[in-house]
Write a protein that binds this DNA or RNA. Structure first.
Length: 568
RNA sequence: CGGGGCAUGGCGCAGUCUGGUAGCGCAACUGCUUUGGGAGCAGUGGGUCGGCGGUUCGAAUCCGUCUGCCCCGACCA
């Protein structure tokens, strides 16, 4: 491709809408342009990258025995009513109707459609296992689209669905996808981690997420390499410490704390740390509000809390009126002493002694509170997010916390959808069996953003080789004034093209600095500079995007080096 | 959806408080000079100042209203 024919516009200044690096760089390098909130056009350069991702995903899916098909993006409401999700899915689902007033939605996912296909196509256990996949545009009417392509409303997803006769078969299909996903992210050259996850809205039992590690990631991951453990923080479990509770050494004292509303304020007033306090959160319950008690420095884990008996799911904090009616005090002055609501204590609270907490009376707190003396010893449950240094569930190490971008998610669905839609096959004895399903998603468009988050510097993008829109950029210096330079550049351009490289020839009549800056912004891995200066010595200048210095090489050396890089 | 902010050429912004000629930088176009790290000079094009309504002799500027976008929270590939 000749730069002069590529209609690429790069930006020196960043549009104000962009906040994270990948979004800024994608706009500046001309990969994407925004149409409306959460809607992006993939420009020619960006599309080249997208296609690279697709190609790798497709190859590995095919290799794993999955079958590609393509389902409609628009889906009839009836199917969603059959699965029960028409009412469940809520505003995330973009609904519409046709000229006959029939209801449809723009598919946010395709469990319903694929299960419908499966129940029509699959008759016998002999046809199983089957794993269908597609690479297709989804729409989710996100509450808050942001970060460019990372959380857009329209996005491209690879979604796959496996069908098996029994649980063992499903497990095998799941394991194959697990391995295929690992191979995909490996090949794409991304640093990633596989973590245990909550199965959430889609339903089902086992589920794991694939996270690209990046500081800007929206998810927190708890992991421990010694113990071979990794989990989304949503599902990382804590257990009671085996240590005995210390004895009480202080007397219970109630004291005035006018204006103290937060743990931080309480700590400042008493000169203690948050770890010596207790916070009491009131959430909506299925049968009136429920109190959740955590150590002051810990964070409530919503996924864990909403699974507790009597707690409303999805989790909702009780509003101030409810709290006041139930306890006679505001949110800043609550505590477990004399608590009249059903209450859950976090494991970590069970080990506390001489702690401080609210007195359930506005403007008053207790200090020197102790279990078994001031309130009954608690049964404890897992309520909080793990923190750095917590023991692993296996007990062999301690947890570290990293941030990640979720680019893949695999689920064991079981029979949730096959049951609802009646997707059965006959088994060996001729009896109808409900098929066991798994589903497997990869955010194709998100991968592009995630790759940039992980691979960039001050000058721009540094594409991992397999993702690069071009392999090589040729930068001729003064091409329009030097016949030697022009001929050398043209010759190299066509030769590399013949060798199968994707080459960008920067044939613009621009100053060198402009070309260098664009080459770096766009992030093409290999750069070959050709100028009169080097040609006089029979040399080209080569530099990899990751290198800080360039090397003067003979033409043959450049060719060999590129050929070698293509093999590895 | 709740809270905060913004809307002025393609992009980044000033001007708004205190009403009176729409401006700067980048980008684009033309010409000349220049050519190894985002060049210089001269010139050109492009904006109903987000929409609608109001106040006023006069509105980018004041008032009302609507829309769009961004940021902070619950959702997710």
């Amino acid at each position: 491709m000749r730069f002069s024919e590529f209609a690429l516009t790069t930006l020196k200044e960043v549009p104000a809408e962009a906040e994270i690096v990948s979004h800024k760089l994608m706009l500046r390098a001309g990969l994407i342009r925004r149409l409306a909130s959460g809607l992006f056009t993939w420009m020619p350069l960006g599309l080249r990258v997208l296609r690279k991702v697709e190609a790798v995903v497709r190859e590995e899916m095919d290799r794993a025995g999955a079958l590609e098909l393509l389902m409609p993006a628009v889906q009839p409401a009836e199917l969603w009513e059959e699965s029960g999700r028409w009412d469940q899915y809520g505003p995330l689902l973009l609904r519409m109707h046709d000229r006959h007033e029939r209801e449809f939605c723009f598919g946010p996912t395709h469990e319903e459609v694929i299960t419908d296909i499966a129940r029509r196509e699959l008759r016998s256990y002999k046809q199983l296992p089957v794993n269908y996949y597609q690479i297709q545009t989804k729409f989710r009417d996100e509450i808050r689209p942001r970060f460019g392509v990372m959380r857009s409303r329209e996005f491209i997803m690879k979604d796959a669905y496996s069908f098996d006769i029994d649980r063992d078969g499903m497990q095998a299909s799941y394991d194959r996808m697990h391995d295929a996903y690992a191979a995909i992210f490996e090949r794409l050259g991304l640093k990633f981690r596989i973590v245990d996850a909550d199965s959430g809205e889609i339903g089902g039992s086992r589920s794991q997420e694939f996270h690209v590690l990046a500081d800007s990631g929206e998810d927190a991951i708890a992991y421990c390499d010694e113990d071979n453990y990794a989990s989304n923080i949503e599902t990382a479990e804590t257990s009671p410490s085996g240590d005995p509770r210390p004895d009480a050494s202080q007397d219970l004292e109630k004291f005035p704390t006018p204006g103290v509303k937060t743990i931080a304020e309480l700590c400042e007033m008493l000169g203690i740390t948050a770890g010596q306090t207790i916070k009491t959160l009131i959430v909506e319950g299925t049968n009136g509000p429920v109190a959740l008690v955590l150590r002051g420095d810990h964070e409530l884990n919503a996924v864990k809390a909403q699974k507790l008996e009597g707690v409303a799911s999805p989790l909702m904090m009780a509003d101030d009126g409810v709290i006041r009616r139930a306890l006679g005090a505001g949110a800043g002055s609550l505590g477990p002493v004399g608590m009249t609501l059903p209450v859950y204590f976090d494991h970590a609270v069970g080990n506390m002694a001489d702690f401080s907490c609210g007195a359930n009376e506005d403007g008053f707190h207790y200090k020197g509170v102790n279990f078994e003396r001031d309130l009954p010893a608690p049964d404890t449950v897992d309520l909080r997010n793990v923190v750095e240094g917590d023991p692993t569930p296996g007990g062999k190490g301690t947890l570290s916390i990293a941030r990640g971008i979720e680019v893949g998610h695999i689920f064991q669905l079981g029979t949730k959808y096959s049951e609802a839609l009646g997707a059965t096959v006959q088994d060996e004895s001729g009896k109808n069996q409900v098929m066991e399903m798994g589903c497997y998603g990869i955010g194709i468009t998100r991968i592009v953003g995630a790759a940039i988050e992980q691979n960039h510097d001050d000058n721009g993008i540094i594409w991992p080789g397999p993702l690069a829109p071009f392999d090589v950029v040729i930068v001729p210096i003064n091409m329009h004034r030097s016949d030697e330079v022009r001929e050398a550049a043209e010759a190299l351009y066509s030769e590399l093209g013949d060798l199968g490289f994707e080459v960008l020839l920067d044939d613009r009549d621009a100053r060198p600095g402009v070309k260098f800056a664009d080459a770096e912004l766009v992030g093409i891995p290999h750069r070959v500079v050709i100028g009169d200066r080097g040609l006089a010595k029979g040399e080209y200048e080569y530099r990899h995007r990751r290198d800080t210095d360039s090397r003067d090489l003979k033409r043959e050396e450049v060719l060999n080096l590129l050929k070698e890089s293509a093999i590895s």
